[in-house]
Design a protein around this nucleic acid. Structure first.
Lengths: 247, 247
DNA sequence: TGCGCTTGAGGATCGCGGCCATCACCACGC
DNA sequence: GCGTGGTGATGGCCGCGATCCTCAAGCGCA
């Protein structure tokens, strides 16, 4: 029965503890995390509005807005008399980065991790091939900047390396100029984050990964579609190896 | 300045004209369609809450809930003093079937149609390959039922054929047992609907498509992964041909 | 005198609480 | 067994105050 709001009258702690900066975002985040975490299982019913208000210390307006948002993301369904029930996992918009961000520990969800990696092996090589065909000068510059960012931070700042790695894959997908693939960057972001959490920062692994990234970049630059696809495949092989070795 | 609500006091027309069954769903649907239709371009600001209320004939509560939903789907962003602004298309959750359903005419959006088909050619053959490896008896029965549904309605009910076709592709993706791929069924649904709108019901095309579907089913049944991938590729070749011939 | 930073007021959304309407479900009665 | 009314939940509307971002006017400095 924790309390989100700063509660009563006396003091005023300016910050909210969870999620976004606004009250209803905090409610959305709390309920979403609780659903993804399994506290409210699919098929189960959430507490009534009134109870949620009391539980979270917010007004009905915020709770109702939060329920609407969760409903928009396919997590719950609100019916008139029956209250709010959690929908089965198949209807959850797991490709929504926000929803994926509510997962308490992606790296421990075996089905999700393998599904994400499998999906990456399906569409990232294809994205690289399309990028080799369509990348503009700006796209190439973006990808190259990411590679440079990886190289310059390799022995040191691990966080910067991760961000550059993410920027690299985002750049390749953006260079594919495909609307659907661009809709998958959120999923990719979550997948990479999970990978970074599992894969320890091994020097050798990092240098291998860097050379694979360079190979993808060069293949795209010279418009070698098959080479780009193959280089991306090798890159994902390395990632899968690291993931498997550590898992 | 149309009015969603039944307006004033005298009469009471029970039905809402747009979208779902509830008021806020109607508002969401109207605003979403208007954004997708280009009436509110990316970067532009929506009218103020008060104006939207007057324009749609609903209360601020409904408008605000609708804005929250649209914000959850990445269409708009509400900032305090600046009002509600439409976000760039890249942040729209186009993989959300609801969002895609707001598109006024998918078949006329060249970039979207080609992007959808391209995406299908990337991940549907892969899904067929995975299905050949993992399909359960129930999965196979579901796919087979869809094929039978296509065959039995081929000369007659076009709508039933389309539904069976959709069920077929859904079944293959479900049989792949991949979380990410299952998240793409909404996109697939919109893609198929757009295809059906363009491709006229040619007898020869339908029979060709049917045999291709049967080939995919048989390959999955005998666990022929490469065959399933190839058959799905041929199926998509046919679809692309029909689409191109008519486009 | 011109430019840039600060500060003030305005104005929009945000959040709250109460109210009534609506509708599904259940139990009672015919 | 079926119809009907009670009951309790969500759906929707309204007005209020708080908040805080934005824009622009005003001031200081070179």
């Amino acid at each position: 029965m924790e309390n989100i709001a700063p509660s009563d009258a006396t003091g005023w702690m300016p910050s909210l503890d969870q999620g976004g900066a606004s009250v209803h975002n905090a409610v959305v985040s709390v309920l979403g995390s609780r659903i993804l975490g399994g506290d409210y299982a699919p098929g189960a019913a959430l507490p009534r509005e009134e109870e949620l208000c009391a539980m979270l210390g917010v007004s009905r307006t915020s709770v109702r807005e939060a329920v609407k948002v969760l409903s928009a993301k396919g997590l719950v369904e609100a019916r008139r008399r029956a209250g709010v029930r959690v929908l089965p996992r198949d209807s959850w918009r797991l490709l929504d980065p926000v929803v994926l961000g509510w997962h308490p520990s992606i790296q421990d969800d075996e089905e999700l991790v393998s599904g994400l990696l499998e999906a990456r092996r399906i569409f990232e090589p294809a994205a690289a091939e399309l990028a080799a065909r369509r990348a503009s000068a700006a796209d190439l510059a973006e990808i190259e900047r990411a590679v440079v960012g990886m190289r310059d931070n390799i022995p040191g700042d691990l966080n910067a390396v991760c961000q550059a790695d993410l920027a690299f894959h985002k750049g390749v997908i953006a260079a594919s100029h495909n609307v659907v693939l661009k809709g998958l960057v959120g999923m990719l972001e979550a997948a990479l984050r999970a990978t970074f959490l599992v894969t320890n920062p091994l020097m050798e692994a990092q240098s291998r990964a860097l050379s694979a990234h360079v190979a993808v970049l060069e293949a795209i630059r010279v418009r070698d579609t098959a080479g780009a696809r193959g280089a991306m495949n090798r890159l994902l092989d390395i990632a899968a190896d690291d993931l498997h070795a550590r898992g």
